[in-house]
Computed example of a mutant assay.
Amino acid sequence: MTTLSLPIVRRRLTQLSAHLVVAVVALVVIGGATRVMEAGLACPDWPLCYGTLLPGKQMNAQVFLEWFHRLDAFIVGMALLVQAIVSVVWRRLLPRWMPWLSLALVGMVALQGGLGALTVLQLLPSGIVTAHLVLALTLVALLSGLTQRLQQSVGVSAPLWWRGLSLLALVAVIGQSLLGARMATTWSAQRCLSGGGACQWVSLHRTTAMPVAGVVLVFVVVALLAGGWARRQWPLLAFVSALVLGQVALGITTFRLGLSQPYVTISHQLLAALLVAVLAALAARCPDQPPVHSPVVVDGTTLETCHG
């Protein structure tokens, strides 16, 4: 079933969910840029910035990053609230799980806002900053999977191996991102490169990088070899492969440059967020329901007699 054949309410929610995926990925990247540019405390108060909605005299690159990060988070929260209200009001036209998931997403973004406040009020504690990123990536995964499910009105379950490998790859990537966040928020990489101390997080992140990439690539290879519906997902599978290879290359480049190029680090986090979004979309996909062919019933009374 195509998207155009879905009820208009479901079609609009699909479009909103797709836009939210982009917005949350942007939120993750802006948050990463805020950390790399050491702008996490550029606005010393919360939820305002220097006591106003739009700081004027204090505005510079760092303040703008922190202020825009909060603005994007506010817009995402309002959009999720609208999605939840629409899902509850028109729940009869939607899957049973849609209102519950929408309300859960509102709760998660509220929790995310609370973690964002704690990162400022408690001066960027490593554990809270890491939890802030992991929750953001979880939102990316759920919204991406939600978008895929809303696009498919009727479908059959994907093969068990597809669901298992795709979810394993998704969890592995999120776990690797968690290690990277922990390494970054404790400044382990800088301390390790400069003085040789605090290298345990750096070593763990580098050690697990190749196995995680291997899990993702195994999923891609198995899907292509399986043929049929799985092989027809090759555009997204190829995109996943490119993201993994790019991520490995950026990770190596980041360390070789001694973390001196913030844009490389930000790109590294962008690819991680995109990888989570695409893997979640693949995990949520399912084959289209094959059409049911009704048997042709021939009414013998309407047929003329055939001689010879």
Rank of each mutant, 00 (worst) to 15 (best):
Q15H: 14
S17H: 06
S17M: 12
A18H: 09
L20V: 08
V22T: 10
V22M: 14
V22R: 12
V25G: 00
V25W: 00
A26T: 09
A26V: 11
V28N: 08
I30K: 00
G32P: 02
G32I: 02
A33Q: 04
A33Y: 00
A33R: 01
A33I: 05
T34K: 03
R35F: 09
E38F: 13
E38L: 15
E38D: 12
A39Y: 03
A39H: 02
G40I: 02
L41W: 07
C43H: 06
P44S: 05
D45T: 01
W46H: 05
W46T: 00
L48H: 10
C49T: 01
G51C: 07
T52A: 15
G56S: 13
K57F: 14
K57Q: 11
M59L: 15
N60A: 13
A61G: 12
A61H: 12
A61M: 14
Q62S: 11
F64L: 15
F64E: 05
F64Q: 07
L65V: 01
W67I: 09
H69G: 03
H69Q: 09
R70V: 06
R70S: 06
L71C: 08
D72H: 11
D72K: 15
D72I: 15
D72Y: 13
A73W: 01
F74Q: 11
F74G: 12
I75E: 07
I75Y: 10
G77Y: 10
G77K: 01
M78D: 06
A79M: 14
L81Q: 03
L81E: 01
V82H: 07
V82R: 05
V82L: 14
Q83L: 15
Q83N: 14
V86Q: 05
S87F: 09
S87D: 05
V88K: 09
V88L: 15
W90E: 08
R91A: 12
R92Y: 12
R92T: 06
L93H: 11
L94C: 11
P95I: 05
P95Q: 09
P95F: 13
R96K: 15
W97D: 08
M98D: 05
M98Y: 13
M98I: 13
P99T: 06
P99W: 06
L101G: 00
L101M: 12
L101W: 04
S102C: 11
S102T: 02
L103I: 11
L103K: 06
L105P: 00
G107R: 12
M108H: 06
V109F: 15
A110G: 12
A110W: 14
Q112V: 07
G116I: 04
L121S: 09
L121I: 08
L124P: 02
S126F: 08
S126V: 09
S126A: 14
S126T: 09
I128Y: 04
V129Y: 04
V129L: 15
T130G: 13
L135Q: 07
L135F: 09
A136G: 14
A136H: 04
L137G: 03
T138W: 14
L139Q: 04
L139E: 07
V140H: 03
V140N: 03
A141W: 00
L143H: 02
L146Q: 13
L150W: 03
L150H: 02
L150R: 01
